[in-house]
Amino acid sequence: MNYRFVVKPELCIGCRTCELACSFAHARNGKQGRTRIFALDGGFKDLFVPVTCLQCEDAACAKSCLVNAITRNPETGAMDLDHEKCVRCMACVAACPFGCSLIDEQHELVVKCDLCGGDPACAKFCPTKALEYKPVTVTALRPAI
């Protein structure tokens, strides 16, 4: 998993194209899904921050899931949520410290970013390249404790 989201909030113009792309990419039964990415106010004038799942290494969502519905996808590196297994107890929604496990009320599902199976739609549609999905070289590894 050498691909990462490269986010440059200073380039984000808050157009929410990423939200729209995500919503359409995750449509089910002919209905748009809830967006898993949010272009939020960064606290300064004209500064927006695209916020989505960080695919944490020691993910709180997976730890809180009592039926093991959230697992790491070895191909994409994403923490994937199995909708068939999910019992919608909302543990991950409450436990995620970044609020990126969320409820899709229309489809009555708990949803999270799945990196669109390795080719995220949000990054493809970003007009200013504030959000990119590209290969990164690992320059610093976490020191062994």
Binding site: P9, L40, D41, G42, V49, C96, G99
Partner: peptide, 19 residues
């Protein structure tokens, strides 16, 4: 806090780092 507030907090932190 709930999920929406968590996201706002994250955006706020990242916003400050960017600035």
């Amino acid at each position: 806090i709930d999920d929406a507030s968590h996201r706002e907090e994250l955006a706020d932190k990242m916003g400050r780092i960017t600035r």
